[in-house]
Design a protein around this nucleic acid. Structure first.
Lengths: 194, 194, 194, 194
DNA sequence: CATGAATGAGAGTTCATTCAT
DNA sequence: GATGAATGAACTCTCATTCAT
């Protein structure tokens, strides 16, 4: 039965997600997932044939969930600055969310596996985020909220800082104050009155 | 003989470095290192007892070598802007150096292993780099080369961007133009005439 | 429905035959046959319960088909020598027929499985072939075509040579010339003018 | 220690031989051999990496032992007929030796594995045996013991018969009388007074 | 009859680690 | 110090076989 099968598939991915959350990527074995799901060894192979495949599927689900980030909670009359602030706030939440966050495993995955650098979905995510931010800044400049003579550069800069924060939060840790300070620095850099 | 022993130790670390360079961190086994060093399995254990320990030692050596980065090639009458530009240029070289660079393995190591976040040498490196950049900027402001009302924030921002570039270069790839653009963006942000 | 069921049974055997042809005996799994037949795993078990059983059934069908070998294409006034020559020609065709021939799998089957040596149908085939050849030779001697003072021995000798050729063709290969030479040698041995 | 290592290697091969003798080729697993040798799983892999490899090595040893067959027990003044008779007697012994004989496993091996037909040592054995027999017959003709106008054909015929006997003895069984009868038939075919 | 998801035993393989020499 | 054979735990993966639907 296709539906039942789909449910089980989803169940496995959700369970596997928790395992990756806890143990990272490379330390997870098929056996770990089998045990976490409480299914048989062979049963797992009916659905997926490697931890790599499972992790990629988990990431896909994750990406779908993330798509909502921008779409919701934006009131009709929000200004560009409001939206950018909201976006950064979301990022901050993400950064500080210690134990419900796949960044660690994701980085590990991308470092441990040979992924194509030109065409992977991390790149797509990065590039599309840059575009969105660029538009927001441009809109802010238009409306007089922001001052910026290189919207594209500013957008990229923001994304690199966020990336830096993200990786830093995983390797050397980062405090809430640190994040606030960096995001504030960014917003200030765009402020019209500068 | 202590000296002989030290030499062998060093030989192992240098050889292991090449292995990590080629295969990353987690994919390297004690066996790999034994084979690369062409020593006996038991022999390796006389010096090190895990890949983790070896990798940490390799990183220590690496860190010592890196200390020279700032110390050399700076002429007496270099201005703050000169020095900062030089520093960024070094960073760029590092970023683009594809195959003689342990970043990949280092990131992998920090993601795959449970490291203390408060006290690890990546943090020390980061913090001391921030301090140095901050001083440079302050000196530049003093001399009128730079304009900046939050030297500390600017320094941290630079380091986060660099970290973002570094991780990005490993996961989704980065072109020389991209690096140039980002570094230019940073320098412009400090330019006095802004 | 019995008839429908019989058809399916036959379909499975015919499909399985192709699989054995391609992969031999021991390398074929129930899964292989299920997939080749495009039926369900459980479905196959309704008809057969092991590859061994299936192979034996395939061989039975095969044997039935082989019974025609002698019956057809023999004109009324054929002499004993003609018929023997025809028989050897058939055997030659069989020997050289590379890919539509179950010998390989059959040998493998008999070597890999513990079969009773006294009572298996290979033995029946062998023994009845010996008898037929013996009669042919006797008839040839009667008619003056052949010379032979041990028809039974000659018949067995022919069958052993054929068996040797058959196994040799599978293990170390055999050329058409080789086969011709051997068959000619046999016929010459029987020739009356020797 | 190379010598010790060689001894163990030999011990494994001898033990494995017994296993193949008992269970054939394809039914033997690495685990079977490990258990028969009473060594560790990993230990076996230090020496061999598959049952195929082990079987090939066993066959090599076997072949070396077989080389003596012709060399020994031949008195100075033996005639060609004597030597041929001796050879056939050896073959007979081999054929009837039920449980100390790798033929079964060897055939199984050659059927189950994809071996090159042009260049495998079975072929070498076959071809060189043909040559030896041919020479023997020629010598016998020379000395007046044999009559034969196609020594080469006769030699090949003998080998094919032997091959047929060999395979037949494994698949449908063969009695001592049968073997005697066939060998006698062969010798008679060569007798000068025919 | 037929399906196909599920199970679990078992084969293959690799390696960290030890230890007698 | 140094060797490398040996161990055994752990992991991957495949299938024969069952059973609820």
């Amino acid at each position: 039965m296709g539906e039942k099968s789909q449910n089980k598939r989803k169940y496995i991915l959700e369970t596997a997600r928790k395992v990756f959350l806890e143990k990272g990527y490379k330390n997870v074995t098929m056996k770990d997932i089998v045990e976490a799901c409480d299914i048989s060894r062979g049963g797992l192979y009916l659905y997926f044939s490697s931890t790599r495949e499972i992790f990629l599927e988990v990431l896909k689900l994750e990406a779908n969930d993330d798509d909502d980030v921008f779409g919701s909670n934006i009131s009709e009359d929000a200004t560009a600055a409001d939206i950018l602030a909201l976006f950064l706030k979301e990022q901050k939440k993400e950064l500080l969310r210690k134990n419900n966050n796949l960044s660690m495993a994701t980085y590990e995955f991308f470092f441990a596996e040979d992924m194509p650098k030109k065409d992977n979905f991390l790149k797509h995510q990065f590039d599309s985020a840059v575009k969105i931010i660029e538009k927001l800044i441009a809109a802010g400049v238009e409306s007089g909220e922001f001052y910026c003579d290189d919207c594209s550069g500013a957008a990229r800069n923001i994304m690199f800082v966020l990336e830096g924060l993200k990786v830093t939060s995983q390797t050397i840790g980062i405090t809430q104050e640190s994040v606030d300070r960096e995001l504030l620095y960014i917003m200030r850099g765009l402020a019209a009155d500068e």
